[in-house]
Every structure is written in structure tokens, then in C-alpha cells.
Design a protein around this nucleic acid. Sequence first.
DNA 1: CCATGTTATGTCAATCTTGACATATAGCCG
DNA 2: CGGCTATATGTCAAGATTGACATAACATGG
Lengths: 110, 110
Amino acid sequence: MREEKQKRLKAKGWKVGNTREFLGLSPDEEAYVEMRLRLAGGLRKRRLHRRMTQTDLAKILDSSQSRVAKMESGDPAVSLDLLIRSLLALGASRKELARIISGPDSIPAS
Amino acid sequence: MREEKQKRLKAKGWKVGNTREFLGLSPDEEAYVEMRLRLAGGLRKRRLHRRMTQTDLAKILDSSQSRVAKMESGDPAVSLDLLIRSLLALGASRKELARIISGPDSIPAS
DNA sequence: CCATGTTATGTCAATCTTGACATATAGCCG
DNA sequence: CGGCTATATGTCAAGATTGACATAACATGG
């Protein structure tokens, strides 16, 4: 939010190694970033679990391989919207999403 | 996703009374819509709990009263990103977000 | 009835996100 | 080494979202 920080984040794209707070993120900014990373990881985990390639998934999503790659890498140029809709499209339920967001996760038993 | 349905949703804006599946939504579309509504409700609940007006909240978010109104009404022209960042800005934790998404909710004890 | 405070709805230019595409990198098999 | 498949990275026009603003609708208290 706070436009200032927004800009700083955009500038750096918060690529930064394996990414963490210590960049001067406020608590809510940190939660936001962490959430994205969790969703990104959840997406990759689910895709691999189904033994799909990024290209396969892209087809399902009516998107492109490059965008899937960006999603999974937590690229800041991808919205939470897209991440979440992708997970839903992979069959994740709201409850599973909640688990991904809050907890350690795990694929719920095939 | 499925561009077709996307367009249909946009067209109608899925305003539709108190909103539900029976519009021909696929399971993941339904989950998506329901999730938005939950977040919207969670936002309003939290704002009222703090006895803030939409204008007060808008200030905190560096946004405007009208956008807050749209968020809380589940307006399709508002992104999940904004809803979620707003909740985080109101102090909700990832775990609380997860609760809002998956469960019946409740303000966690002031 | 008129104020006043709050929320709803519509519009629009600036900004951000998207899918598509090109291209690069990495791993693997012969 | 060259092919092959999967993934990563960069760019961009088309489209979606944003904050701001105007204005309407709705209460509540005189």
C-alpha cells in the first residue's frame, strides 16, 4: 500500500535471494509476500504431483508457459488473483487454499 | 479462466442477488466467487469492529471511500489482491485470512 | 422539511496485469 | 558434441484494475 514502499518493492521486484522481511517490510507487507510465495510453491507442488509440464498447465489455464513459470517463481508481476485461480483450476478447494496460505501444506491424499 | 465464462461473468458482473452457483458456475469458479464474498464480508466485519467509516479505512489504504465500498460489496471490478492487502493492512494475519477463506470466521478476540 | 454523516454507484485516465511470443538456460540421452 | 524437452526471462500491445471524483441513496437527528 503505502505508495512509497510499493515503489521500492516494484523497483527491486523483491527478487532478493530466497526472500524475507529484513528488507524493511512492514508486518503486513511481509505477510503479503510470504503468502505469494506459499501460493507459488503450492502451485508448483500440485502441478508436479500431477506430472504436468508448465505447458500442460498453461493449456488448462488458457495461459502460456512463460506465465506459469512466472507464477511459480513468485514473480511480483503476477497477481494473487491469477495464482489463486490457477490453484482452484488445479482442483484445490477453499479449505486447501487456506491450508496453503496458513500452514506447512502437503498434498491432501490423492 | 475459460475465456468464455470469464466474459459471461464480466458481462453480468455476477451481481445477482445474494449470489450463488446455480448460474452455471464450474466448481472452481464457484469457489472463487465464494472466496471473494468471504473476504469482502471479512473486511466489512473488521472495519466495523474497529468502528471505522469506509473513509477512515480508505485513508489507511491510501485508497478512496468508493473503492472500499466496492470491495465490501464484492464488486467484480475489485481484485483479490486489493481485498487481501486491505485485510492485511487491517492487521489480519495469514492464519486469520485462511480462516476467513475456509471457515465461518469470527473476529479472533480483540 | 433540512442538515449531516455514511455508504453506493458510475466514470475515467493512469497504471498494472495479461497472454503471446522470442529467446535463453538447464538437464538428459545418445 | 548435437538434439530434445522443460523451465526461465524479457518484451509488448491489449485488456483489467486503480484512486479520484461526482453524485446519488440512505439513515438519523433536529
